[in-house]
Amino acid sequence: MIAYALIFATGCFTLGLLMNLYRLASGPRAADRILALDTMVINLIALVVLYGIWIGSQTFFEASMLIAMVGFVSTVAYCRFVLRGNIIE
């Protein structure tokens, strides 16, 4: 039963990644593209966690934590660049 639920959840998040890719490519404004990148990072964390459940290993939590931190910092840096034209003042 868990296997079917895993396949369903993985399919959902993969489909979500494709939708984010569409918005990343066609977003009319810079804010749309930043938002799409941020959502892609979040979906990627979910995929890594689901893969960890699939192979029954707990070694992927450090990886997903690192991805979360790098995604947050990169989103903030991109927004600062759009806001102020400069990342570290």
């Binding site: 039963m1 868990i2 079917y4 639920a5 895993l6 369903f8 959840a9 993985t10 399919g11 959902c12 998040f13 489909l15 979500g16 990644l17 939708m19 984010n20 569409y22 918005r23 938002l35 799409a36 959502t39 979906n43 979910a46 689901l50």
Partner: peptide, 21 residues
């Protein structure tokens, strides 16, 4: 319980990304 949370998380993630487009 695990399957329930997995299905709910998949639906929520899909709805969020669908809302994006």
């Amino acid at each position: 319980a695990v399957s329930f949370f997995l299905v709910v998380s998949g639906i929520f993630g899909l709805v969020g990304s669908w809302g994006l487009i």
